[in-house]
Design a protein around this nucleic acid. Structure first.
Lengths: 216, 216
DNA sequence: ATGCTAATGTAGTGATCACTACAGAGCGCC
DNA sequence: GGCGCTCTGTAGTGATCACTACATTAGCAT
């Protein structure tokens, strides 16, 4: 019931086929992140990609399947960025570097996958548990990367505490980042350029606070 | 062009009319907060409210008008709650009390207006500037209330700093709260019950950090 | 009780929805 | 050069979309 496979949804074999598939994914990604699932029609994706609906249904079983592919691909890109940011020897603290990469290149907005994840999770909710679970799993992988960077940022608390709170607080860190970037888009009063620094300060304080609470 | 008034959208004059209007708003509010704008059909609202579509169009001009009314009403309820929480002499710090009220009674979820605002802002975006502006204005009123509570929570920094950072950081506080509650709904690892405390610690640290940065 | 109109019921408008059937184009391989 | 399969173009499916026209019911005032 949860597995899906009526008309397999072919993979591209010829080079122009692969290009078409990518164009469809591009168009669908942009539209889904911008207007949500229900607000994005197949005809709109067809128009934006320049390919007929029959091509869309050649590569993908149905709208859900296409959406799943979009999610997967945009998450891949996001995780790649996070991974790169975590490694390269760049200036700034690990967390600040991470937020530099996490923010969209075009400005101080949520990365596409973040928008997609929040919008789809809100809109589909419990009515599409498959998609929800897919998003959960991908976010968890992101949180692991954030956790590594956070551990680095908390190094001055000592290795034990840093390791523990890096893992423990990673979801909170992404939550704050997403909330901040989200709100910054339609609410002046949140400065996205200070967010990285703010969040780092915030998490260090929270870690210290939790540590103190326990020793007492 | 921005003003809307083709078929005025009557107000209820008879008591049963008022009840019907409220039922329509109830159903629309729940569905909109759950499935978004595009995902909520008039027929679904009709079904959920038990009233025919013609009644919906008796009270409201069109779907946009109905949505605007839903936003306005749910914001009113939200601001009421925030106001009450700010005044009553209850235990806990002002901010923690605020989050107690801000969270939905049914559990640790975003209040309906918060969900509505984020979902609609994400989904409609720049394509519906009227709605966006309406949301902005209501959120600003909420931020004022949060600012007052935050000022109380930062009282130990001295009256000047408390007043300044209460106002300055209020949008960030709501952003963190919204991000946290949002993520907590589909991501374990964020404990909504600790959020109030976490955010208070976070904001105090951020305020101190900013103050220190300036005096140096 | 009668008249007025607020509110509901019924039926339908054209447009768009996701999706399909199927023929034709054009590339890849022998 | 010809065959086969991938991909595209055209056309149309029934269902649902927001919304309307209009007749009918039912509450209120006099």
């Amino acid at each position: 019931m949860t597995t899906t496979e009526p008309t397999p949804g072919r993979a591209a074999t010829r080079p122009d086929g692969a290009r078409s598939r990518a164009r469809i994914l591009d168009a669908a990604e942009q539209l889904l992140a911008e207007r949500g699932y229900a607000g994005t029609g197949i005809s709109a994706i067809s128009r934006a990609s320049g390919l007929p609906a029959s091509s869309i249904y050649w590569f993908f079983q149905n709208k859900q399947d296409l959406t799943a592919a979009v999610i997967e691909r945009s998450a891949e890109a996001w995780l790649d960025d996070l991974g790169k940011a975590d490694l390269e020897g760049q200036p700034g603290s690990p967390l600040a570097r991470l937020f530099g990469f996490a923010m969209d290149k075009s400005g101080a907005t949520l990365p596409v996958f973040g928008r997609l994840a929040i919008l789809l999770a809100l809109e589909l909710g419990d009515r599409d548990p498959d998609t929800l679970e897919r998003l959960r799993k991908l976010r968890r992988r992101g949180n692991e990367l954030v956790g590594d960077a956070l551990e680095g940022a908390l190094a001055d608390l000592g290795p034990d505490l840093a390791a523990r709170f890096g893992k423990e607080l990673a979801p909170l860190a992404t939550a704050f980042a997403e909330g901040g970037l989200l709100v910054a888009q339609f609410d002046d009063g949140v400065d996205p350029n200070r967010l990285g620094e703010d969040i780092e300060v915030a998490l260090r304080a929270i870690a210290l606070h939790r540590a103190q609470q326990e020793t007492r």
